[in-house]
Design a protein around this nucleic acid. Structure first.
Lengths: 146, 146
DNA sequence: TTTCATATTTGTAATCATTACAGATTTAAT
DNA sequence: ATTAAATCTGTAATGATTACAAATATGAAA
């Protein structure tokens, strides 16, 4: 699947965000890399193409995208924010061994948006986080143990 | 309800943690303040009683408690860790207006511990985070708007 | 009780993620 | 082409957390 720049541009304009070159690059990276990258990962990659790219611009752009609903932030590690282009309702799994974050496509009673408040608290966002050992790390561990 | 030091001491010893004075104070504070305090809040309060208390000791102690299952960490804000003495299965709500974190006692399919893995990933921890406007902020807002 | 090894605490410095800010550059309309 | 506004850049500041080494406390052995 090829993510072309025209599609990226349309996506920005549809949300009322002016499509600058830097913004196009950030959004394109996020569409190609859906592994919930850190700011550092995004910066490192885009710096190769745009050597003058500033990390501040990455932060500004990501915050702008967040405000306009182009992204979701994942706070699962507690020490850094991860970014997720997949804004549909889903949960996340963090492996405590390799640090990988994977999407969890699982139904929960809150995902469908039917429940709008709990105990009088108005719900705008729902985040489900699982932590443990991922499939790959478990299999790797089994081999070593044999 | 009075949380006496003897009970705190027993709780530490039951988990194999040597009950030093600093550790007793941190655990006592957490039992009395179940509003998911930050490190700063814990430090500020205990400093009043123990003026020599070091923030590093707070961090060391909290990490020790985490390792020994005396606490849970809440990563809901993304920029700081919050600490929760309530280690039973429950979820959290963060108000984007006042920043308050409240416990959400709601049943979800994962809370009961019956589901131990998803897509081959072994689940050790489950965290449910809701974000929105809390009951108090909503009511306050209604009054102003009238 | 003294001695000594070990664990704990303390304070400072370092690190890492993020934001603030001001100057430089680009954009878009006139 | 001019010019005002928006955007980008780089550095400095902030805030949370950890690293580390010196100081202190603890507990067992003599």
């Amino acid at each position: 699947m090829i993510t072309n720049m025209k599609h990226i541009k349309n996506k920005l304009e549809a949300k009322g965000v002016k499509p600058t070159y830097q913004r196009l690059c950030v959004l394109e990276y996020l569409e190609k890399n859906m592994n919930h990258p850190t700011v550092e990962m995004i910066y490192e990659n885009i710096s190769k193409r745009i050597p003058t790219m500033s990390k501040t611009t990455i932060y500004n752009t990501l915050n702008l995208f967040l405000e306009n609903g182009l992204l979701h932030a994942v706070t699962i590690t507690g020490t850094e924010l991860r970014y997720d282009i997949n804004t549909s309702s889903h949960h996340h799994f963090l492996c405590r061994k390799c640090g990988k974050i994977v999407d969890i496509e699982v139904k929960c009673p809150f995902c469908d948006g039917e429940i709008t408040q709990i105990d009088g608290n108005e719900i705008e966002e729902i985040h489900g986080y699982f932590k443990g050992i991922c499939k790959e790390c478990r299999e790797k561990n089994d081999k070593v143990g044999r």
